[in-house]
Simulated assay, not measured.
Amino acid sequence: MKSVLPIIVLCQFLCTSLWFAGNSVLPDLIAQLNLDQNFLGNLTSAVQLGFIAGTLVFAVFTISDNFSPSRVFLISAIFGSLFNFLVSLEGMNAIDILIFRFMTGFSLQVFIL
């Protein structure tokens, strides 16, 4: 049982890195796609709005009360990493990137369980 706490801390750290790792590559992505520099603020807002929307949806539907919190955490971590990965694919446009960053934020809300 002593190993449970370090595992939880490590999982929280790795999943929270979705927010920061995505933000660290976005300036390069903006330059590569020739987007306006103000777009970075939109991307940051998309993650925050996704986080707020996810928190609201999970609270209204009492997801963590009705399902195993560890399973909800795992599924959210998988989806968050998938959405974060999709931003890096070829052929992305500004709207696609905003949607995937929003969905990354939506998935991140579960880490407050």
Rank of each mutant, 00 (worst) to 15 (best):
L98V: 03
P6A: 04
S70G: 13
V110F: 11
S76R: 01
P69M: 05
A77K: 00
R101I: 12
D28A: 09
Q109W: 15
S107G: 02
N42T: 10
T62V: 09
D96H: 13
L49T: 03
L89E: 11
K2A: 07
I99E: 09
A21H: 01
Q48H: 07
N38R: 08
G91F: 07
S107R: 14
R71H: 07
L10A: 03
N42K: 08
G91N: 06
S3Q: 12
T55Y: 03
I63K: 00
I97H: 12
F20I: 11
I97D: 14
F39V: 04
N23R: 10
N93A: 03
I30V: 05
G41M: 12
S76T: 02
M1S: 14
I75Y: 02
E90T: 04
T16P: 08
Q109S: 14
L74A: 02
I8Q: 11
L113Y: 11
F111V: 11
Q32A: 04
N84W: 04
L56V: 09
Q32T: 07
I52P: 02
F13Y: 09
S45K: 00
I30Y: 01
S64T: 15
V57R: 07
N93P: 04
I30R: 01
L33P: 13
D28E: 11
L18D: 11
F111S: 05
Q37D: 04
F51S: 03
L14F: 04
L26V: 14
G22W: 06
S76K: 02
V9G: 09
F58A: 10
L98F: 01
Q37R: 07
Q32V: 01
S45E: 03
V110W: 08
D36C: 06
L82E: 07
A77S: 08
S76Y: 02
F83R: 06
I99T: 13
F61H: 04
I75P: 06
G22K: 05
D36A: 10
F106A: 06
I7G: 13
S70K: 15
L113P: 14
L5H: 10
T55A: 13
L98Y: 05
L108K: 10
V72T: 05
N93H: 07
V110H: 07
A53N: 09
D96W: 15
I75D: 04
F111W: 14
D96P: 03
I30Q: 00
G22F: 06
R71D: 12
L82T: 09
N42G: 09
F102C: 00
G54W: 10
G80C: 01
S45C: 08
V4W: 13
L108I: 13
L5W: 13
L98D: 02
S88K: 04
F79E: 10
N42Y: 14
L18T: 12
A31Q: 10
G105L: 00
I78T: 09
F20P: 13
S24V: 15
S88V: 02
R101D: 08
G22D: 06
L113I: 12
R101S: 06
P27S: 05
L98H: 00
D65E: 15
Q32R: 10
G41K: 12
L98T: 01
T104D: 03
V72I: 10
L43W: 00
L5G: 14
S68C: 09
S88Q: 11
V110R: 10
L35Y: 02
F111T: 11
A94E: 09
D96A: 04
L98K: 03
L89N: 14
L56D: 07
D65Q: 14
C15N: 14
L5S: 15
L82D: 07
N84E: 09
S68G: 02
S70Y: 12
